[in-house]
C-alpha cells in the first residue's frame, strides 16, 4: 500500500504541477502537507504500526461514556 500511495502522490504531483506552481504558497504548503500525511498513514499501515496506535482513542474517551450514559437512560 505504501508503494501505491507514493505512486499516486507522484501521479498527482505530475498532473497538478502546473496548477501547483501557479498557486500561492499557502495552498502549496497545504497540498504538500496533505500528501505527506497520506503517505505517512500508508507507511504506518504497511509497517503494521496502526493497530498499536489507536488514533481514535481520544475521541472514544471523550464521547463513549456520554453515549453509554444515554443508552442507560433510555
Amino acid at each position: 500500500m505504501s508503494e501505491m500511495s507514493i505512486l499516486f502522490a507522484l501521479v498527482l504531483w505530475f498532473a497538478q504541477r502546473r496548477q501547483l506552481r501557479a498557486a500561492p504558497i499557502r495552498e502549496r504548503v497545504i497540498w504538500y502537507a496533505m500528501v505527506g500525511l497520506a503517505i505517512s498513514f500508508a507507511f504506518v499501515i504497511s509497517w503494521h504500526l496502526a493497530p498499536n496506535l489507536q488514533p481514535l482513542a481520544w475521541i472514544d474517551r471523550l464521547f463513549d461514556p456520554l453515549t453509554h450514559k444515554l443508552y442507560q437512560i433510555l
Binding site: 500511495s5 496548477q19 497540498w31 496533505m34 497520506a38 488514533p55 481514535l56
Partner: peptide
C-alpha cells in the same frame, strides 16, 4: 481544485489507518 485530489489521498489512507 488542489484540495480535492490531495484531500482524497488523505481520506484514502486515513480510512484504512483510523479504523483497523
Amino acid at each position: 481544485r488542489l484540495l480535492a485530489w490531495s484531500g482524497g489521498l488523505v481520506v484514502w489512507t486515513g480510512s484504512l489507518f483510523l479504523f483497523g
